[in-house]
Design a protein around this nucleic acid. Structure first.
Length: 569
DNA sequence: GCCGTTTTCGGCCCGACTGTTTTCAGTCG
């Protein structure tokens, strides 16, 4: 997929144009196109081939020509020409907080500064003071920004960001005067990668709430502090923004603060056409406050259905909301059980009994214990003789449990040829067989695709686990051709997994959306290796929701009888 | 550069905070 490459090219063009003082709306057009391309669940090359590029919002004649040029030649002449006008390194300056395109241009025009190192030297030498509008404080901010960039604050994955949010929400919740408090931003939209944490508070005493926020224990430095809006950086290097509004503006503020940016622009434009104005304080006709207490009120005023935060990316959800045709997204409470958990039999840390009890407590009606198979020695994979003992243990536990079933499963290994490491006579004994790639990640994309397709073809394999193999901070997704996998999965009634393990979330939201469009069924599992990890299910559900899945698309929303029937190949 | 149940040209979301100003531009979200 070249989607992300092309999005990044458009972003680069936007940066250069902005620095050159080009039309800001032209700049925005490139950025919007980039966001929309990143949000596609289809391969942009397919769209190009089928002449459907202009169906993408924000792509017109010019940008579709540039995409075609890139797809066929691997480059875009316009960017190459632009690159000649800007020395390499200048764009890096934009990564420094507090430095934008205007400042970069100024620095280059005045002192020919074209790298972070040069800027650092000039700032330290005091030379920057010669520029009108730059004084000591600005220089200090620049130097601190450079330190920050050099440390390159990493983005977080969703679960990490949720934990940081809790470090703020929990202590603030109990401050007198803090009424409502909630996360907003990309975290509320449950994006898989979060760059900063946004918090919204309602209070009649905004300054009290602000000072409580900026003086919390995890705060290392205050980046900005105003009467209703502050930003801090935590000890772990994460930026947290906080906004306080009055109760009557809560809905409008939440809508604004949740985004996405493109979503906000679109609905504000819609409001303008109705003679209304939307800002974070409410919906207004002229100066008259119409509403703003809840998001629902605002949506209603615009004549549209409530849009779940996970959908707010301006990818067609607004149009559906206007016609009341939004999908009814799957919810955590729809999940009836977890089909991918481990136990003491392989590399888990809890017994089958403990896993079952924890699952029952959550409210599930089944789990499937899928310990590793024999070839995965590193995870204590089960030999064929151990399997009999494990099965006997499950049968014993099931006799004692009421209204709950432990299913007998396995997570088998797909070997480098696509073969499964138990023979058919063993495989057919299991209630559920999950297959996954655990070795040979370095193989070519076509080899890995072939292995996965072959596993789908196996009549005893019900689920492909963590289909792209990505592990946050460890390795990227392998170069698998998911379109081919989707085709095989659909033909063979094989489910693909959303693995909820915090650093996996694999399939991701875009892939899930594409799988749904290809007619492929999904299962959401946690891959828990201990009872306390079962709670990660909500992360996988978030991915499913971002992928527009409804309960009917997720097989483990079915009751046990329906589940086993649906999984039959 | 995109886009159109008022428009194929003339618009394009809206506001807070900072650092420098003496009324505002730049940055950010």
């Amino acid at each position: 997929m070249k989607n992300h490459e092309i999005a990044e090219i458009f972003r680069k063009i936007a940066s250069i144009l902005e620095m050159k003082g080009d039309n800001p709306f032209r700049v925005r057009a490139y950025l919007r196109a980039a966001d929309n391309i990143d949000g596609l669940s289809e391969d942009i090359e397919t769209l190009a081939k089928e002449k459907r590029l202009k169906n993408i919002a924000g792509i017109g004649d010019d940008l579709s020509a540039k995409i075609l040029e890139y797809v066929s030649t691997g480059k875009i002449k316009f960017l190459e020409d632009l690159n000649k006008t800007v020395p390499a390194g200048v764009l890096d300056l934009l990564d420094i907080p507090s430095i934008g395109p205007k400042t970069v241009k100024l620095l280059f025009d005045k002192f020919k500064i074209k790298s972070i190192e040069q800027l650092e030297q000039s700032a330290k030498s005091g030379r920057l003071l010669e520029i009108p509008g730059i004084k000591e404080k600005t220089i200090k901010n620049i130097l601190e920004g450079i330190v920050f960039v050099k440390k390159s604050a990493e983005a977080m994955y969703l679960a990490m960001a949720l934990n940081i949010a809790d470090e703020f929400l929990n202590p603030l919740k109990i401050i007198p005067g803090v009424e409502k408090i909630t996360v907003a931003g990309s975290l509320r939209r449950r994006k898989e990668i979060i760059r900063d944490v946004d918090i919204l508070i309602t209070s009649g005493f905004p300054q009290k709430a602000m000072s409580a926020f900026t003086s919390l224990a995890p705060v290392k430095e205050i980046l900005a502090e105003g009467e209703t809006k502050s930003s801090v950086r935590t000890l772990s290097g994460v930026q947290v923004d906080c906004r306080v509004v009055e109760e009557k503006s809560f809905g409008a503020a939440l809508l604004y603060f949740t985004g996405s940016k493109n979503f906000n622009i679109k609905i504000r434009q819609m409001a303008l056409k109705k003679g209304l104005k939307i800002n974070e304080y409410g919906v207004f006709r002229g100066n008259k406050f119409i509403c703003g207490r809840s998001e629902n009120e605002v949506f209603k005023t615009l004549g549209m259905a409530y849009i779940e935060p996970e959908l707010r990316e301006d990818c067609g959800e607004i149009e559906l909301a206007l016609n009341n045709k939004l999908p009814h997204l799957v919810e955590l409470k729809d999940i009836k059980g977890d089909l991918h958990v481990h136990s003491l039999w392989s590399d888990g840390r809890s017994s089958i009994q403990e896993m079952a009890e924890a699952a029952k407590k959550i409210g599930y009606s089944y789990i499937c214990v899928t310990d590793h198979s024999k070839s995965l020695k590193i995870a204590n994979g089960l030999s064929i003789s151990d399997l009999k003992k494990k099965k006997a243990e499950i049968e014993k536990i099931n006799k004692k449990l009421n209204n709950f079933v432990v299913l007998y499963g396995t997570e088998v290994d797909i070997d480098s040829d696509g073969k499964i490491d138990y023979p058919d006579r063993i495989l057919k004994e299991f209630d559920i067989v999950i297959a996954a790639i655990h070795t040979g990640f370095k193989q070519s994309g076509s080899q890995i695709t072939r292995r996965t397709v072959k596993a789908c073809m196996n009549k005893y394999v019900h689920v492909i686990a963590h289909p792209t193999g990505r592990l946050w901070g460890v390795r990227d997704a392998y170069d698998i051709n998911l379109e081919e996998v989707f085709k095989a999965a659909k033909e063979t009634n094989t489910r693909l997994e959303i693995n909820s393990f915090p650093n996996r979330l694999d399939l991701n939201d875009h892939n899930v959306h594409a799988a749904k469009q290809a007619g492929v069924g999904i299962v959401i599992n946690t891959d828990s290796h201990a009872a306390e990890q079962l709670g990660a299910m909500h992360l996988g559900v978030s991915v499913a929701r971002r992928g527009w899945l409804e309960a009917k698309d997720v097989v483990n929303t079915l009751k046990i009888d329906g589940l086993l029937k649906a999984l039959k190949k």
